[in-house]
Amino acid sequence: MSYRPERRAPVQALSEVSLHASEGELLAVVGPSGCGKTTLLELLCGLREPDAGTIECPPAALMPQRDLLLPWLSALDNAAVALRLAHMPKAQARARASKVFAELGLDGFEQARPYELSGGMRQRVAFVRTLLSGKQVLCLDEPFGALDAITRAEMQNWLVAALTQEPRTVVLVTHDVEEAVVLADRVAVLSPRPGRVVTELDVALEHPRRRTDPAVVALREQALEALGSERTSEREQVR
């Protein structure tokens, strides 16, 4: 998949990526910045067409890297926007969203406009919006990037709990290898641009996983190594 910007050379964002996620699986995608992770999610959601290859994916909801909340709607209405688009009555849509708000520690900010929220709060609102879309597949683009360590851990636990309650197929893009190992059933490591799959790691561990669990640490090291070796091999090629 390549971008063809005007007046600049085309950029090949992805090459020969072959990934599969089974139903109910949480697939994490890690890779260096600019390797095409966001592009991959946009392909999955049908927002871009691949130059070559095929994508088979049931309808997917995207949580974009930038939150893209609508500044003229309250936080609650932003979160409930998918329900409103599906013609659910306003009161009912708000009630559903505010239930999740409370669970994510956003209560009290229902009426706030997006610009009155912190970056982490906006991210959580965008997360609720994606979740409430009711789509079978969720594409999360660095969903917890703007959160502090503690809130991030809380959100991760909450995500795992929410997914056990209501299983969905999730493709989670992240910079954070540890987050990938703690949350995912499988971790795909991408190479620098143009992205291709370097390794896929199976994480066959029970939830809840502890960061300090030796198995988690070992997998994390493995993933980091895969990321790092790609970097060095690329540097050698340049020389």
Binding site: G46, P59, L85
Partner: peptide, 26 residues
């Protein structure tokens, strides 16, 4: 209007008219 904003609404199944009302008209 941010094209990404419109894309996002499209993944949430907004019709062209709904996208206009939600993102462009305001």
């Amino acid at each position: 209007v941010d094209p990404d904003q419109l894309k996002l609404l499209r993944t949430l199944d907004a019709s062209r008219w709904q996208a206009f009302r939600l993102a462009e008209a305001p």
